[in-house]
Amino acid sequence: METKNRTIFFEVCNLSISFGGLDALNDISFEVHKGEIFSIIGPNGAGKTTLFNCINGIYKPDGGHIIFKGQKIQGKRPDYVARLGIGRTFQNIELFTHMSTMENLMLGRHRYIKAGLLRGAIMWAKRSFAGREEVAHRRKVEEIIDFLDLQSVRNKFVGSLPYGTQKQVELGRALAMEPELLLLDEPCSGMNSEEKQDMIFWIKDIQDALGITILLIEHDMKMVMDISNRILVINFGKIVTEGSPEEVQKHPEVLRAYLGEQDNLENIA
């Protein structure tokens, strides 16, 4: 195998975590190649979001490794993991509701902004380092606003935006940190079909134009089969199977555990 010698982009090895005797994740291992869309599917409560939380450092796994660009990241603090270049959106929107879209996205720039307490305190528009830096990062954020068509809500408080737009802002915020690996937790949940189409378009664009590797959790099977390079199926915290969309669709256990009856499969295909 030619993969032996290169450094692995992202890898999860024998990851396990349990909450009070319940094995939320049990011996999960997989590898994500740079530049691909890797989807994780499974029924509700399968442990998908728990897996994301372990990667982010929100949960400390009981055992196993998570390796990102040759560095072990399991058990590290979330902000440390974020600074390495792993971005994230949430299943239940976690926006800063009392800030505008622009300010929300500016938080994505947090790790790049150098002016802290003292230089920020003496900010004096163009005459100060902090002022020039703020403007430079606002220009960068503007690119993302253009990319996601958020111009009309740039200065609106995100708390008052429609649900689909909020999901978009959340994606923008994660993109603003220019991650190398992006974790998307159900980016299309609760969206209408038009919004879904837009979101699928952006996700593909993020992969193609920005070259960001994507780890995706999604329940919409059509979408998952459509855009994923590879798919991991988990149930009850264990791996069911892993492979290309075509392979996964044919796997008998997937049909039983997740897709259900035979006639459902016909709908998907």
Binding site: N56, G57, I58, R77, P78, D79, V81, A82, R83, G87, R88, F90, E94, L95, F96, T97, H98, M99, E103, L107, G108, H110, R111, R173, A174, M177
Partner: peptide
């Protein structure tokens, strides 16, 4: 403000 509004999201954006 980020810590006040959504502390977990703030952390995943690199806020210590």
């Amino acid at each position: 403000i980020a810590i006040r509004d959504a502390d977990i999201a703030a952390e995943t954006l690199g806020v210590n």
